Amino acid sequence: MLRGFYTAASGMLAQQRKTEMLANNMANVNTPGFKADQTSLRAFPEMLLKQIEGQPFPSQNGRTTYNSIGTLNTGVYLQEAMPLFQQGSLKETTLSTDVALLDINLPINPDTGRTGSVFFTVMNANGETRYTRNGNFTLDSEGYLTTGSGMYVLDQEGNQIQLTSDQFQISEDGYITGANGETARLGIGYSDNPLAMVKEGDGLFRADGELADAYTTANVTFKMQQGFLEQSNVDSAQTMTEMMTAYRAFEANQKILQAYDTSLQKTVNEVGRIG
């Protein structure tokens, strides 16, 4: 009976974690460049139950025979959440500081069977390189191109981009031309296995080392659109449906747990009573 407790409890914990993940997706449905997390439930390894035969133990010939009863599953767990690197829809903002990455042709990784992904290259407060799909940029007080949270946007050479005003043009291949003739090229990284990257929050991803230069990587085709933002790829209707399903599954496991508790209470208070 105690095994049933553990099985139902693991189901409740897994559904709780799934609900939290889906709630985070819903909270970022309007966050530019946000990539929805996805996961799945997996069962713990099955246990093979066997019954020892009624002969003396150990048996006279030194062997013990078993009668197979069957398998028992001991619960479920939630696999690690992984981002869905699917292209989000583009929304026109007409702001010169907004830039969207548009995937055109990204090779399929033969080892994973998934397509790669391209990212803007930025620098965090510790001077470390990070990657993002959020092109909602701005200019700080010194004219540096930054993200909305103040991280420097880097050029192809890994340097910060400084402009004299927000009246600049960005071509489809990433070249920036400022109002006073200053030039730069947006740094774009390419990962052939984006699922290996670590999601840090605030739309940032960390890679093990630096990503390849997307401009020089063979068969990688993409473009930039100034005055547009890539929207979140969260499907709000589907996410709400999955949240309701997870909530109902949590309730079902909860009722099973309550039933086990009632059975144990009856066993202790009634079955064990003498006279």
Rank of each mutant, 00 (worst) to 15 (best):
M1C: 12
M1W: 11
R3I: 13
R3G: 09
F5I: 13
F5P: 00
Y6V: 12
Y6A: 08
T7G: 02
A9I: 11
M12V: 09
A14Y: 07
A14S: 15
K18Y: 06
M21V: 09
N25L: 03
A27H: 11
N30A: 01
N30G: 02
P32F: 03
G33E: 15
F34M: 04
A36Q: 06
T39R: 09
T39C: 02
L41K: 00
F44H: 10
E46Y: 11
E46I: 11
F57E: 14
N61H: 10
R63D: 14
R63P: 04
T64A: 05
S68A: 12
I69V: 14
G75Q: 02
V76Y: 03
L78A: 07
A81I: 09
M82V: 14
P83C: 06
P83T: 12
L84W: 04
Q87A: 12
S89H: 05
L90C: 07
E92Y: 10
T93E: 11
S96T: 12
S96R: 07
D98P: 02
V99S: 07
A100C: 06
L101H: 01
I104G: 01
P107E: 11
N109C: 00
N109I: 02
N109A: 01
P110C: 08
R114T: 15
G116M: 09
G116V: 09
G116P: 03
S117V: 10
V118Q: 09
V118F: 08
F119N: 04
T121N: 08
V122M: 03
N124I: 08
N124H: 01
G127Y: 07
G127D: 07
R133V: 10
R133S: 05
N134K: 08
N134A: 11
T138L: 11
L139E: 10
D140G: 10
S141G: 09
Y144W: 08
L145P: 06
L145T: 13
G148R: 14
G148I: 14
G150C: 03
M151F: 15
V153P: 00
V153M: 03
L154Q: 04
D155I: 00
D155Y: 00
E157K: 13
G158F: 12
G158T: 12
N159S: 15
Q160N: 11
Q160F: 04
L163P: 01
I170Q: 08
S171E: 03
G178Y: 07
G181F: 10
G181R: 06
T183S: 06
T183V: 12
R185A: 03
G187P: 05
G187W: 11
I188R: 09
P194H: 07
L195V: 15
A196K: 12
G203N: 03
L204F: 09
F205C: 05
E210I: 14
A212K: 11
A212N: 12
A214S: 10
N219V: 06
T221Y: 03
T221C: 00
T221H: 04
K223Y: 10
M224P: 03
F228S: 15
E230K: 00
N233V: 06
S236P: 00
E242F: 04
E242Q: 10
E242S: 08
M243Y: 09
T245W: 02
A246P: 00
A246E: 04
R248A: 04
F250Q: 07
N253H: 13
I256P: 12
Q258L: 12
Q258E: 15
A259I: 13
Y260R: 10
L264N: 14
Q265K: 10
Q265V: 12
K266P: 02
T267Q: 08
V271N: 10
V271M: 12
G275V: 15
